[in-house]
């Protein structure tokens, strides 16, 4: 008879509690997986699981509710900020966030995000910008870079035909209802660490009673971009950031403290 030795190894990193065991439907190397993990890490570390109501959007990330082990409501395409407004207005004690892609937030849902921001809704918005409609087969998004080939801009996005990439987070940062707006990326581990700090700050601001907090995250779509996962990461750090510079655009609650990161403690 054998006895299993207890694992005495000292843990440095483990899959966060609020990330379900389910294998995701995302393509290999897709940035959504990293961002889901960051959200799950923060909800776990900040003990927000029992009070969180997540608002899912439409696109590849519609199944976020299958991977984050929290209450979730699904929205029609683009309407997540309005749905989150409804949740917020009748559940003042809940932690409320939306998880939206660029097609959802910056095209079909433009009115909803702008006006939720203008109202200063106390919600956190996780805005995943990979510059493409992944779910429907890689069409041009409002955030697609000039010259970028997609299945609906086969010759590359041309400004005279399809306009310019929309820097919507900068636009939102102008609104006084937005307490925090930042843009991070997932292009490498240090960028992922900085993005996690931005998300933590966004969550802290909601908990401190601030207005909307939004973190745009430059992500990848290796399959839609026709690249390997490492190539897609390099593309973000060398090309995409030129159109969408990283950093904190506004923090209107500078006096409000940020909670401790587990890694820093």
């Amino acid at each position: 008879m054998t006895t299993l030795a207890p694992d005495t190894r000292r843990l440095i990193y483990e899959r966060p509690e609020l990330l379900t065991d389910r294998s995701s439907h995302y393509c290999p190397g897709c940035g959504h997986g990293i961002i889901h993990r960051l959200v799950a890490e923060l909800l776990t570390e900040m003990h927000l699981g029992p009070t969180t109501i997540g608002v899912a959007s439409v696109g590849c990330s519609v199944f976020a509710y299958d991977y984050l082990d929290i209450d979730f409501v699904e929205s029609p395409h683009g309407r997540a900020p309005a749905v989150a407004t409804g949740v917020r207005r009748v559940r003042p004690d809940a932690f409320v966030f939306t998880y939206q892609g660029d097609g959802d937030l910056a095209a079909i849902g433009t009115a909803e995000i702008v006006h939720a921001a203008a109202r200063g809704e106390r919600i956190s918005v996780i805005f995943v910008n990979n510059g493409i409609y992944g779910m429907t087969g890689g069409q041009m998004a409002p955030t697609t870079l000039l010259g970028q080939r997609t299945t609906s801009s086969p010759a590359g996005r041309e400004a005279n035909l399809a306009g310019y990439p929309i820097p919507i987070t900068e636009m939102l940062a102008l609104l006084p209802g937005v307490s925090y707006a930042a843009r991070g990326s997932i292009a490498d581990p240090s960028a992922i660490g900085r993005t996690k700090k931005m998300l933590r700050r966004a969550f802290d601001i909601q908990l401190a009673g601030g207005g909307m907090s939004i973190v745009e995250i430059l992500s990848t779509c290796p399959v839609g971009w026709g690249m390997t996962a490492p190539e897609a990461m390099e593309h973000v750090s060398k090309e995409v950031v030129l159109t969408y510079p990283l950093g904190v655009m506004v923090d209107r609650m500078k006096d409000s403290p940020t909670s401790k990161d587990k890694d820093e403690a």
């Binding site: 409501v73 949740v87 009115a111 909803e112 109202r119």
Partner: peptide, 21 residues
């Protein structure tokens, strides 16, 4: 709760969110 929404789309989706709770 009362919100004058940005559109009827906004209004009914706020209702969706509130109803979900």
């Amino acid at each position: 709760a009362f919100v004058q929404a940005e559109s009827e789309l906004g209004a009914i989706n706020m209702a969706l969110g509130a109803a979900a709770t």
